[in-house]
């Protein structure tokens, strides 16, 4: 465990927490893509199937449980508790465009052809594209609430910190996980345009709105 990894996990946790705070405080999930949140719940579910079969550490178990809980509570907030505020007309990204290639690729490129490994691979590939319905929604409406942009910033920062963690692990342990690294790079690239807008607009006190 290195500093990049810890900061990455904390950034991920903060992102999910910020999203829940936004929904809970405003009693509204306006501007949030329910589709992205369903994909994240699916990512954690398929990745953490080893929760009961493969004990790694207290930290690992606790974080997995918290991530799963946050993901499911968020989906519950969007589709049940505050569904009247859910901006369904703008959440129109076609999920089959992500799911079909991701399912196909997880069968083609994986470490071992077993159900848990294929599902783990599926979760890694899916995570790299899961934010696209959310980014699509923002580009469609042309704006995002400031707290939503903080959520996106920490979610992107988490994967960028994991990239630093993988470089560190390669240097110190000679360890690398090709599937995670390639997907992590792709995932981080999707946030670059947003990072630019975040730094040039949100951090200068302006609302994120697209021309």
């Amino acid at each position: 465990m290195n500093v990049f990894r810890i900061l990455g996990d904390l950034s991920h946790l903060l992102a999910m927490f910020l999203l829940l705070v936004k929904i809970w405080r405003s009693k509204s999930c306006a501007g949030i893509s329910g589709k992205s949140q369903i994909l994240f719940a699916l990512v954690f579910t398929t990745r953490y199937l080893d929760l009961f079969s493969n004990f790694i550490s207290i930290y690992n178990t606790v974080m997995k449980v918290v991530f799963l809980l946050c993901a499911y509570v968020t989906v519950y907030m969007i589709y049940w508790k505050f569904r009247k505020t859910f901006d369904i007309e703008n959440d129109t990204f076609r999920l089959e465009f992500l799911l079909v290639p991701v399912i196909g690729l997880s069968f083609l490129v994986n470490y071992s052809y077993t159900p848990t490994e294929v599902l783990w691979t599926f979760s890694i590939y899916l995570e790299s594209v899961a934010i696209l319905p959310q980014l699509f929604m923002i580009s469609k409406t042309g704006e995002a609430e400031t707290i939503t942009t903080h959520y996106l910033f920490f979610l992107g920062l988490y994967r960028a910190l994991y990239l630093a963690n993988w470089i560190w692990r390669y240097q110190t342990e000679n360890f690398y996980d090709q599937i995670s690294v390639v997907s992590g790079v792709v995932q981080t690239i999707f946030y670059c345009d947003f990072f630019y807008l975040y730094v040039t607009k949100v951090l200068k006190g302006k609302k994120l709105s697209l021309p």
């Binding site: 080893d50 790694i56 550490s57 690992n60 994991y162 342990e173 996980d177 995670s180």
Partner: peptide
């Protein structure tokens, strides 16, 4: 060179 997946990462 190691080429395996990281079971300890989240």
């Amino acid at each position: 060179h190691a080429l395996h997946r990281s079971h300890d990462e989240l």
